[in-house]
Design a protein around this nucleic acid. Sequence first.
DNA 1: CCCATCTCATAAGCCTGCTTATGATATGGA
DNA 2: TCCATATCATAAGCAGGCTTATGAGATGGG
Lengths: 158, 158
Amino acid sequence: MMRPLRRELMFQLVETARLLRTYVDQRARQHGTTRAQWGVLSRLRRAEGLNQAALAEQMDLQPISLTRLVDRLEQQKLVERREDAADRRVRLLHLTPEGRELVEGLDTVRGEIAGEVLAGVDDAAIVMALETLGTIRDRTRPQRDERAQAARAAGRAA
Amino acid sequence: MMRPLRRELMFQLVETARLLRTYVDQRARQHGTTRAQWGVLSRLRRAEGLNQAALAEQMDLQPISLTRLVDRLEQQKLVERREDAADRRVRLLHLTPEGRELVEGLDTVRGEIAGEVLAGVDDAAIVMALETLGTIRDRTRPQRDERAQAARAAGRAA
DNA sequence: CCCATCTCATAAGCCTGCTTATGATATGGA
DNA sequence: TCCATATCATAAGCAGGCTTATGAGATGGG
């Protein structure tokens, strides 16, 4: 096993996350939803009335990815798109009563899963892992400001 | 921010891995491939001549997921499926010369990425993160042995 | 005021994962 | 030997990411 530590961590991070994603998806399915949709509902509960662009940015998702998630949530009547009187392009997202009820139930499940999966791991280890993940996240996160600046600069130059 | 540590880690793990996956995909694309396909090539280099079931198990992937990855790799002439004289159901996987060349070049890239993304993080933190990930991985990994045993037991009972 | 430019949402098309199901082949016990 | 069962690979169909492209509407500098 000569694999250097840093490469090993890259590898394990992606693999572990995939396993965890699948695991959480199975749990979510027992409640008739999916991990990704659950994520949208959760955020929406804490910040209702967001438009899709703002929510996508908050979730580090491409707007089109969120559009399709919301399509499915809307079909299931868990989320509503409402018009914005001030800007006819935007759609403001609201939970329906059913959506609110579902997400509140799921909150319990999230806690259960975290307990199962991390039982016996002490807080110090979790804090350290969070820090390391934060570093990775910052270095791989798409730099939206820079991207927008670059686009503007290119526009100016052209 | 009252979010408990363990829930926060679950969340950050999945989000960070997604960002990393996308980042690595972009790098892989510069070499004309994808992260997932690269993964297959890497494993194959270290264990050529595996059949698909064995490789899927090693990668914690469902066989069908691997089948389609291999389809694309075969189309690109990076991998070959060969018949097994001893069992006509199985296909043995081999790298082509082009496949071997590609994966050897990519090895450098993997090291580069690990360095960029984890620069300044000390070894102790990486070891701890690996340990925590290992715990999660073990608890979320599908238990193939148990599953197979359950299937056998069900068979016997029926 | 008007037009170039930006932004919001979405479409099209791709990759990769999953579950469920199926056909071909192997295998082991009666 | 023969049949029930298991295993290997794959198909169908879905979810959820992505890139690239487009139309509608907002906005600001000239």
